[in-house]
């Protein structure tokens, strides 16, 4: 217990002694972890977007206006039996008009003229089990005679997902690079710490300190720098996220953005802290091996 206290106090004293380099290495780590956090936040939003997209991804098969009731009925049965289809809803010409009326509510009188000669085609709305099934179902629909046209909103969702993925890969790639840099910066910071205490280390060994005892404070120091970096990184990432979310809400109001609850913030901080500690440990272990000759 006293030993751990000693290790910590040594580590903190050393960080204090090399304030600038310690701060810089924490900052670099913070930046690397900021990128990791960004990628985490993007992936949360991607998951959310997938969900939204999947519930919204509905195929509409517009039927021939001239089709007879029995033709429509057999087509509906056929669709219901297609693999991958989970929900089928038949919308008659009249239903379609009714929906339109509801959409326009106050201006519904404009639609009165349509009552006589309803130009809206009957349609079938289809939901699939998942997004992957959509192309197959669309193909099958097109081969049905009474189906005039098939519409689905896959394109938009696909784009969003692609953009999100690109951001994620970019930030992960950036993180890898900056992560490597932070390992080196921490290693350098620890090297300075070791140099500052060379004489002390020599005497420690002379009076019988074990290698572990000598190097442990430096490992603690590296871990602490990494942890500090993860706190900074979480701060940066949350700040940036809130800012971007605010801007998006302002300019693209229909774009779904996940509001962060405290759980996902803690999850993120957990991941970042773990990574930060690993980065710090790697950096300091590297320096200790190289410069402490133990």
């Amino acid at each position: 217990m006293r030993l751990i206290g000693y290790m910590f106090s040594q580590a903190f004293r050393s960080i204090w002694r090399n304030k600038l380099s310690s701060f810089l290495s924490a900052l670099t780590t913070g930046f690397a972890l900021f990128l990791l956090g960004t990628s985490f936040l993007v992936s949360i939003n991607l998951g959310f977007m997938y969900q939204m997209a999947e519930t919204q991804m509905e195929i509409q098969a517009y039927m021939n206006k001239e089709a007879t009731y029995s033709e429509l009925a057999s087509a509906a049965t056929q669709i219901r039996e297609m693999p991958g289809v989970s929900e089928v809803k038949f919308v008659s010409k009249e239903d379609a008009l009714e929906e339109l009326r509801e959409m326009f509510k106050d201006k519904a009188s404009v639609l009165d003229s349509l009552e006589e000669d309803n130009p809206l085609p009957p349609s079938v709305r289809i939901k699939t089990v998942g997004a992957e099934e959509i192309p197959g179902v669309v193909e099958a629909l097109k081969s049905i005679d009474v189906v005039d046209d098939v519409m689905y909103q896959e394109e938009v969702s696909k784009r969003l997902v692609q953009v999100g993925k690109a951001v994620q890969y970019l930030s992960l790639g950036g993180m890898l690079v900056v992560g490597l840099v932070s390992v080196m910066v921490i290693a350098n910071s620890i090297r300075l710490a070791i140099d500052a205490r060379r004489q002390e280390i020599g005497i420690m060994k002379l009076v019988g300190a074990t290698d572990g005892f000598v190097l442990m404070p430096f490992l603690f120091e590296g871990i602490f720098l990494g942890f500090l970096g993860s706190a900074l990184g979480t701060g940066f990432a949350l700040g940036a996220y809130n800012w971007v979310a605010g801007k998006i809400a302002e300019f693209i109001p229909f774009m779904p953005i996940v509001g962060l609850d405290s759980r996902s913030i803690w999850d993120m901080f957990g991941i970042m802290a773990l990574t930060g500690v690993m980065v710090g440990l790697t950096g300091s272990a590297f320096s200790v091996r190289r410069h402490l000759r133990v």
Binding site: Q199, G202, I203, K205, L206, V207, G208, A209, T210, D211, F213
Partner: peptide
């Protein structure tokens, strides 16, 4: 190597430059 510290705990060393 890891036995060396335990050996040194039983040996005192003094130098010209005090250290």
């Amino acid at each position: 190597r890891r036995e060396v510290p335990y050996l040194r705990r039983r040996i005192g060393v003094v130098f010209q430059d005090f250290k």
